[in-house]
Nucleic acid binder design. Structure first.
Length: 336
DNA sequence: CGTGCTATCCGGATTACCTCA
DNA sequence: AGTGAGGTAATCCGGATAGCA
């Protein structure tokens, strides 16, 4: 499922309209999943059966149900640039990303994970793996998750493990809550920055590296994606709210302007007898044009958008400058 | 080729636990 | 010490998809 919200695709067109398009789509999720080895799933599935867990996470489309808000990233005259983090979701989950591919950056968490894959069968204890991991993540975390002991590592003593782990046989009804150690959380975070989704191998490797259960890694990623999306939604909501306020303000101003013009018409009906070309609407740039002075540079991006049709009158300049927030390049992905 | 079944994954909603003010 | 709020790990459920018979 995809929720696409596009805003301002016509903004390049002098911002005459603010279009909010909300679309719900489906069916893209599995495009990355085709061709994935079944064996990978079975490896994990086997572990799952042993543990009696629920569904395991598996790398599918990296952006399964991303809420895509194709909003203008930066609207200078609005004065509220799109928060950088708001782009994080998409940035971190590019379409078509091959989660099976090791990241190009050598010193990544995934490099560690990839290393782990090689010795997947041999590394019996995560501790052994952990010892090798910190070095290949440039500026990485000194991980010693096995030594977390205490409340950090669930594997440590198994007591920390959730229902998914050895905790299963302690009654079952009580679900103990694992608290990931800072190192574990940081490592997962680093991993998430590179891939917001995991394929089975990565999951297993990561779990091994962190001395967690694959299921726990999967759950962490799921929750992390949910948090990201929630945050993204909040940011987008805030942005839209500001857009709405700005547009409301502009609408108010235009209404006032219209009233003034009407009053002018009443007081000086003479003007109304002028040729129609004196005050006309340019069909291409949708701006008021007249035969008087050339447009002021204040028109900004608007003027640049339609250099052939300078709004000459001061009113037009005012009209244009008021819309200067529409000067953004307006990527408008969906617009034609 | 179409269909039913199974397995798997994921998102969304929710629960339950833990920490902290 | 008790408590409520917030964070988050874990669970449940439904939808979607792939593989297979």
């Amino acid at each position: 499922m995809e929720l696409g919200l596009s805003l301002g695709e016509t903004m390049a067109d002098a911002g005459r309209e603010l279009v909010l398009g909300l679309g719900v789509g489906a069916g893209e999720r599995r495009e990355e999943e085709t061709g994935r080895g079944r064996r990978d799933q079975e490896v994990v599935a086997g572990a799952r059966r042993d543990l009696g867990l629920g569904a395991m996470g598996c790398g599918s489309s990296p952006e399964p149900t991303t809420m895509r808000l194709a909003l203008l990233p930066l609207v200078p005259s609005l004065g509220f640039p799109w928060p950088s983090e708001s782009r994080h979701l998409e940035a971190s989950t590019p379409r078509g990303f091959d989660v099976n591919q090791a990241p190009s950056t050598g010193g990544s968490a995934w490099a560690c994970a990839a290393e782990e894959e090689e010795q997947e069968d041999t590394a019996a204890v995560a501790g052994a793996a952990v010892s090798s991991s910190p070095n290949n993540s440039g500026g990485s975390f000194p991980m010693d998750f096995c030594a977390q002991g205490g409340d950090g590592a669930p594997g440590g003593g198994g007591g920390g493990g959730s229902r998914g782990g050895s905790d299963e046989d302690d009654g079952g009804s009580s679900r103990k809550k694992l608290r990931l150690s800072k190192e574990q959380a940081a490592f997962l975070e680093e991993s998430f920055k590179e891939h917001s989704t995991l394929n089975p191998k990565q999951k297993v490797a990561l779990a091994k590296q962190l001395n967690l259960l694959p299921r726990q890694v999967e759950v962490w990623f799921q929750n992390r994606r949910a948090r990201t999306k929630l945050k993204q939604t909040e940011v987008d909501c805030e942005y839209l709210k500001r857009c709405c306020e700005t547009l409301t303000e502009e609408n108010r101003r235009l209404q006032k302007e219209l009233a003034e013009l009407r009053a002018l018409k009443t007081v000086h009906p003479f003007y109304m007898h002028l040729p129609a070309t004196t005050l006309s609407m340019c069909p291409s740039c949708e701006r008021v044009a007249s035969n008087s002075a050339p447009a002021s540079a204040a028109a900004g991006g608007i003027a640049a958008a339609a250099p052939e049709h300078r709004p000459p009158s001061s009113f037009a300049a005012l009209f244009s400058s008021a819309r200067s927030f529409t000067q953004a390049p307006a990527p408008a992905p969906s617009s034609s």
